[in-house]
Design a protein around this nucleic acid. Structure first.
Lengths: 233, 233
DNA sequence: CCGACTTTGTGAATCCGTGAACAAGGCCGA
DNA sequence: TCGGCCTTGTTCACGGATTCACAAAGTCGG
């Protein structure tokens, strides 16, 4: 899948000074969330075990890949039976750090920021949006879901006060680098950037980019070839 | 890749029955939009040529990679000088299909749908949102930017009428597969899916996934390792 | 208790993407 | 015109990821 994918897509090999570099390949990490969702849904459907074949089908990948991926988490499968759903769920959630609760700040209270705030409050285990900041004074004090919009000057204080680990940038591209610098200075460990610019950040801070226009342009590239004859005006 | 990490990430090798499979590697395609943005900004700054070194710096990649990527577009560089900015821009825009204007439909008029509609109307060359549909009757007739929200029943008519090539799914996951089926039936060639589910679509239709929770979970994975000692509660 | 069947875990071959190094090619000053 | 200099285009080697195929290991019916 994520051929991309993924997408979707991102950047640098994360190598924040850990003595033993993560033995889990990057490509595998990107698939774990997909597996996790599949396993959760199977559990809700009443299953207690799941085979690599079935999991592969649900996740849209190859069965051998599933087995190899899961083998990186340690061996929790039972030959002839499959994987224990509860145990698999627990282990994957654990590895993904979802047993903790990561406080996040969203910078930029536009539509995209609001979408993320709602999305994370509603669905996602493991993350909570504790603050939203915006440069526009008119928005200060508004609420998105249950989270208040603060002044951008408050960013350092908010990060320190809530021990915020993850900063999410949903600002216009022109200010994204400045915001990133502020987030780094304030001490966040990871940044998820939605602004269509290439950010430079110091080593030791994790960065991941999501670029909406890029995804469309990739589609357009392939569409422009496959349907050459049937292309629109 | 997509990673490709990507970011985000997406899915399958697009191989819609073209006689000569695209000679441009997938990884390269994903970088073209980034190059294009860099080139545009250099042009606005007055540059008439750009070296692979400079472009690499702006795009955050290796210079050799830039040269190799650009060589897939044909050879437009001049040794000893660099690449002609205008020509490069034109060629990349062309390859990415941005010289055409792709009509898009957004399914799901929530915050995310609105964010995309605004984003595409404002910034992006090559795409125009010609319709938004939603299942919620209360939203019908509203406008997001200059685009009206239509009833979901109108989807087939809208697609046919406007020759819509790209469908963007910003609905809750529960209805995403249904929506995808409808889009395919209506005749779109590409789907950009923001719902956190694995969609199944027939061969010949391009699919790309953007999964917001996935990106966060990947960050969480690495954050959970690098800052083991300093991890929050 | 045993044999047939199922499913995992992994060894090995292959493919794709990356990055370094270098030769080919074109500009510019004298 | 000619030599020096700069930058591209490409070859090559390497590492990571994917996939196949199979042995190991466990279940279940008789």
């Amino acid at each position: 899948m994520s051929n991309r994918a993924g997408a979707s897509d991102s950047d640098r090999e994360p190598s924040a000074g850990d003595d033993s570099p993560s033995p889990v390949p990057e490509a595998t990490v990107a698939r774990l969330p997909v597996y996790l969702r599949a396993v959760v849904s199977e559990r809700e459907a009443g299953a207690t075990t799941i085979s690599s074949e079935r999991l592969a089908k649900l996740a849209g990948v190859n069965a051998a890949k599933v087995r190899k991926d899961l083998s990186f988490l340690g061996t929790y499968g039972i030959r002839g039976v499959g994987y224990d759903v509860d145990r698999l769920m627990a282990e994957m959630g654990n590895q993904l750090g979802l047993s903790q609760n990561w406080p996040c700040v969203i910078v930029g209270a536009g539509n995209l920021g609001a979408a993320l705030a709602n999305y994370l409050s509603a669905d996602e285990r493991g993350f909570s949006v504790v603050a939203i900041v915006d440069a526009d004074e008119a928005k200060w004090g508004e609420h998105i879901g249950s989270v208040a919009v603060h002044a951008d000057d408050d960013l350092p204080r908010l990060v320190a006060e809530h021990d915020i680990a993850i900063g999410i940038i949903t600002t216009p591209p022109s200010v994204a680098q400045t915001v990133a610098d502020q987030l780094v200075a304030a001490g966040v460990g990871s940044i998820l950037n939605f602004a269509p610019v290439v950010l430079t950040i110091p080593d030791g801070v994790l960065l991941r980019n999501v670029d909406l226009a890029l995804e469309l342009q990739v589609l357009s590239f392939y569409q422009g070839r496959s349907g050459e004859a049937a292309a629109p005006a």
